[in-house]
Write a protein that binds this DNA or RNA. Structure first.
Ligand SMILES: [Mn+2]
Ligand SMILES: [Mn+2]
Ligand SMILES: [Mn+2]
Ligand SMILES: [Mn+2]
Lengths: 263, 263
DNA sequence: CACTAGACTTTGATTGGTCAAAGTTGTTAT
DNA sequence: ATAACAACTTTGACCAATCAAAGTCTAGTG
């Protein structure tokens, strides 16, 4: 089954056009089918662009908040005007609720699609590390493309091959194919105090350089450590991974490392 | 490195436009860099569309012939007008030579790109069969998408994992990463005569139904067989795969099966 | 040699996605 | 309250890719 580009119906001059920069009416119509109450027989696949916006909105709205338009524009790499225009389209398609000058939030249908993209992204990342032996610092960019190209069939084969994992190489949870994603309760390393022991659970920065640094210092997810010292005034925290040299991190860096604290 | 959409320079009214439907002048300019004599530092990636056209032209022009525009339009799934327009763009970009009303042929640069796409396609097909366990009848469509999403790095990992194979699941040769593709000298099954023995080498039809049939009858690449009878008049040939029931094929079907004849 | 049918090209329009630049607003700080 | 500013939206344009329909060639056929 190929990606079916929506047919080109309304040829010649066509119907109502309100003023300004108003395109996309057909697109909206098609997406609207996606969430029709009757389970539609053939889903029209959302475009790569739509998938990217949905995923970024999902990631920005963590915790019921509205995702800010500015942040969204930066996240998808477009100008603010482009983001506004696209978000309106998503709202027309009932994939998002848009509050002008306040922000955007996904609807139920939008969330469902976003989670599918996220699942693909994270399973692919793990696959690239586990099966093909890429470094965890390179897989994010690869997955950014592949997440739009892989079919459900291939995805489920990968999932099975990996043994139905539930976290990706960075410790991010892999959403299940249906249902709500698990919610881990993790602590940022910044909130740890001296003598606390814990385990690195998640690294929330995909920048290759940072990931390589974290790996070199032995702080990849799963690594056990003890906090040696911590000082908000010095803006730094020193931790000692088991059987490793101690590492001192500034607050900005430590905030990107989420840990599971021993109780 | 993300797919860099070419920047949007010449804003506002801009330079020369000859009459008619003349877009794509910028696009051409960018692609032209690809084959500049100076090795350009950052290749602008050809779009998915360009990759698909190049691949299909390559496959249609087998043997120095000009690929016919009509066949190309069918192959890429667009109307003839669209194919004409795109081929002109490719010619502007020096990826193809276009002879109006005669056909199109790839240039050196176009051939290089086409072979890269074909290499990705076929390695991916084999990977999907070998590593993920998909059926050989489903991998073509999957690869049609993935061939545009996979980086050189991932491709070389796959190549290594598969042991640098030289044919895909259908027996099609996998072009090497540099240099000319191997040329097999194969015989269509239609040209075999009774009592000849041989080995299936290649099945040149990607239709799932045909591939499933071939598999059921035991005529997948590598299968040894003997010709039982052949009659151009009856338009049919009967072959017996080793340790299998004999199969009778019409000429149209037998032509799609290429074999290596025992000398 | 003139005709014609099919293959191809041209023309004009559409859509999704984008940007630059100008216009609008809501929120802070005086 | 008001001014300033950053964040956001609007406007008008562009480009790649496409189609439908109308126009043009060309290779036969008679
Ligand atoms: Mn992406
Ligand atoms: Mn990740
Ligand atoms: Mn393709
Ligand atoms: Mn193949």
């Amino acid at each position: 089954m190929n990606v079916k580009t929506p047919p080109h119906p309304g040829s010649k001059k066509d119907v109502s056009r309100q003023g300004g920069c108003f395109h996309k009416y057909l697109f909206s119509k098609i997406l609207r089918q996606t969430l029709s109450l009757v389970p539609s027989p053939s889903y029209p696949m959302p475009s790569v662009t739509v998938e990217n916006y949905l995923k970024q909105i999902y990631l920005l709205q963590q915790g019921g908040e509205l995702a800010p338009m500015g942040g969204l524009a930066v996240a998808v790499g477009v100008t603010p005007g482009t983001a506004t225009s696209m978000v309106k389209t998503l709202a027309d398609a009932n994939l998002a609720d848009y509050a002008p000058r306040a922000g955007v939030r996904l609807t139920e249908a939008g969330t469902r699609l976003a989670l599918q993209v996220l699942r693909r992204h994270r399973l692919i990342e793990l696959f690239l590390v586990q099966t093909l032996g890429l470094d965890w610092s390179e897989v994010h960019d690869e997955a950014e493309e592949l997440e739009h190209a892989i079919s459900d069939k291939v995805l489920e084969k990968i999932d099975a091959l990996l043994g139905h994992p539930d976290t990706d190489p960075h410790g991010d949870p892999i959403p299940p194919s249906t249902g709500k994603p698990r919610q881990q309760k993790l602590t940022p390393l910044t909130e740890c105090t001296p003598d606390m022991a814990g385990e690195v659970a998640r690294v929330t920065d995909q920048a290759a350089e940072f990931l390589q640094f974290v790996d070199r210092q032995g702080l990849t997810p799963g690594a056990q450590f003890t906090v040696e010292s911590q000082s908000p005034t010095a803006d730094a925290i020193t931790v000692r991974p088991h059987n490793r040299e101690p590492v001192t991190l500034g607050t900005a860096a430590a905030m990107k490392i989420m840990v599971k604290v021993e109780e």
